[in-house]
Amino acid sequence: MSAPLLIIAAGGTGGHMFPAQALAEAMLEKGWRVRLSTDARGARYTAGFPDAVEVTVVGSATFARGGIVQKLAVPFRILAGIAAAKWRMLRDRPAIVVGFGGYPTIPAMTAAWALRIPRMIHEQNGVLGRVNQLFAKRVDQIACGTWPTELPGKIAGTHTGNPVRAAILEHAGSPYIPPGEYPMSLLVMGGSQGARVMSDMVPPAIAALPEHIRRNIRVSHQARPEDIERVTDYYASELISADVQTFFDDVPRRIVDAQLVISRSGASTVADVSVIGRPAIWVPFAAAVRDEQTANARQLVEAGASVLMPEAEFDVQTLTAKLTDLLSDEAGMLQMAIAAAGCGVPDATTRLVDMVESLAEAGKT
């Protein structure tokens, strides 16, 4: 008898692919076969997946990009993808199909719904994405990476948390050194591509800090390529020790070392910071249609672990005042770190695996 098959459907962003990879690795360890259905963008992330994962690349079909001709072709490409997915599932019937969001999940999830195969979705953010919203009433269960997650109507979700990388888990609940009269590390991140607002506001806000705080500051600052030179030069002109890069390949270590994180509140970043347990200032991406980054930070803010600063309020003077308050409050920052760790879900992958196995088992009856 062959091993049960799990089909994972995930769109082409890291936010969808990283938790999908964590589930794939865990299910392979349990003896399952795993097939990933994604698009060309998602295929760029598959290098991190185990070789045992079979990758199926479906045509990208989104109304968000392309000209009028391409948009008119989208429904036909989706229908073709659904037909192909159904044919594959009839040939090799999966025990369960799990969607992580993004347009490439539509064919697999629709085929599973039509064939009455057990199915569930995992939503990383605190608000359902467009595709997960489409399938929310057509799946057996919804796993929520952020809690609480805004769900439509009377639909219930299960809080699993967002799976994090092994490098983050190694530092789960690391001891925190609160700010004091010694070198203090600030980690500034703006998402996968950096964020101009961070480069515009954070350096001058740090420069304006009272001298007894400023002299101890060490900064790790992620910036866009076009901002690297000016941000580096500004820190140097103000005699502030700073490491400015477009990408940090050692983010887990930098989070551990940080007295404070200043960042966009993407779901993966929020999960990483909370599992390690660090105080943070979250600056949600203002242009997000569903304002999901505000929702992502909600639990940490309500727990007293973080401060939320909407972009409209994220100016130099306000940030300087907030940094001064935080970095002068040793006891308060220690409590924030403890509260952050209390919101972390280091066993998120295990919770997700348990849901998958339970649903697949129920589907046999």
Rank of each mutant, 00 (worst) to 15 (best):
L6G: 09
L334Q: 15
L308V: 03
E211T: 12
L5I: 05
L260P: 09
R88I: 00
V127C: 06
V53T: 05
V131S: 00
P178D: 02
A321E: 15
D250A: 04
L90F: 04
A167V: 11
F49Y: 14
A85Q: 11
T13D: 12
P175E: 03
L260K: 13
R351K: 15
R253L: 11
K137R: 15
A166H: 11
E311V: 03
P346K: 06
A287C: 01
E357C: 10
G344P: 06
G191S: 07
V270Y: 03
R35T: 09
I177W: 04
A22W: 02
A321Y: 01
G180Y: 02
A166R: 14
T158S: 11
A348M: 06
A10V: 08
Q141I: 06
E54T: 14
V188S: 06
A339V: 10
S185E: 14
E302W: 05
L239A: 15
G67N: 14
A112T: 02
H221E: 02
L169A: 09
A305N: 11
P225T: 10
A360Y: 01
P118W: 09
A312Y: 00
S174H: 13
G126L: 07
P118G: 05
R119A: 14
A83W: 12
P175W: 04
R278A: 06
N132F: 09
W32S: 09
R35V: 01
P19L: 11
D227W: 08
S268Y: 01
G161E: 01
G59W: 06
A280C: 04
F63W: 13
L28C: 06
A286M: 03
M17P: 05
L5V: 02
A20M: 01
L239Q: 15
E25R: 15
I68D: 02
T105Y: 00
M27W: 01
T269N: 09
G14H: 05
P225V: 03
Q222L: 02
E54A: 14
R41Q: 08
M1L: 10
I228G: 02
G194Y: 07
P279G: 06
F18I: 13
E361A: 15
A287Q: 14
T269H: 06
V301M: 05
P94M: 01
P19N: 07
V69T: 12
V231P: 02
P175F: 05
R351S: 07
G99W: 08
Y45H: 12
L28F: 03
M109S: 04
R119N: 13
R298S: 11
N132V: 02
N125I: 02
K137E: 12
D315N: 15
T232E: 02
V356H: 09
